[in-house]
Design a protein around this nucleic acid. Structure first.
Lengths: 92, 92
DNA sequence: TAGAAATATCGAAACATTTGAATGTTTGAA
DNA sequence: TTCAAACATTCAAATGTTTCGATATTTCTA
C-alpha cells in the first residue's frame, strides 16, 4: 500500500457515521451488511447514507454486491490488513 | 480507544503532509524528529507546518518536547498500537 | 406494464480544513 | 539588553466535505 492509498483509507475512516457502519459488522453473526440495515441505525437522509457507503467502497474498505434491488456489503479484510501493515511499518 | 478517538486519529492520518511527517521517523536512526527538520522536506509555509504538527500532537500521535528554542517530537507508539487494536477489532 | 421499493446522482447550503501573510511569543547568543 | 532564531497564533481566502431535497435509475411485484 502506498501513502496515497493510506491517505484515502484514513479519510474514509475519519467520520463517525462511517465508523458506525464498519462497527456494525462486529455485531453481526454473518459478515455482510445490507444498505437497508444502515438506514435503521444511522439517522441520516438516504442520499447521505449513499454518500458514506460510496466513500467506504471507493476506499476499498467495503465490497458491494448487488442482490436484485438490494445492495449487500462485505468488509474487505485484506485491505484492512494492508492498512494495518502500513501503520506497523511507521513504528519501526 | 473509543470511536471518537479513533475518528480523530484517522483525521490526523488523512493528509499527505502529515503522513510524510510520520514516515520520516522510519528513515531516522534515532526515533525523534525536530520541527526544523520538517521544514526541510515539506514545501509549506511555517504556519502550515505548525498547523500539521499540532494536528498530530492533538491526536496524540506525536509527543512534543521542548529543547530551548527548538521542538523535538517523539512518535507515540502506544497510541499507534491502540489504533491498530481498534482496527483489528473491526475484523472479528 | 404500471407502481412501488431500493439505491444513485445532482445541486446547493452549511460546515470544516488547508494554506500563508502578518504578527506575537519565547529563548538563546552577542 | 538587544537581536535574531524557532515556533505559535490570528485572520482570511481557497478548497473540500457533509447534508438533504429533488429527481433519476433499476428492479421487483401485482
Amino acid at each position: 500500500m502506498d501513502s496515497k492509498k493510506f491517505e484515502k483509507i484514513s479519510k474514509a475512516l475519519s467520520d463517525s457515521s462511517r465508523i458506525a457502519i464498519l462497527e456494525k459488522f462486529k455485531k453481526k453473526k454473518d459478515d455482510c451488511l445490507y444498505c437497508t440495515e444502515v438506514h435503521d441505525f444511522l439517522d441520516l437522509a438516504q442520499p447521505s447514507i449513499s454518500h458514506h457507503l460510496k466513500q467506504l467502497v471507493d476506499a476499498d474498505l467495503l465490497i458491494p454486491e448487488k442482490e436484485g434491488r438490494n445492495l449487500k456489503y462485505l468488509l474487505n479484510q485484506s485491505v484492512l490488513d494492508d492498512y494495518i501493515k502500513f501503520l506497523s511499518a511507521l513504528k519501526s
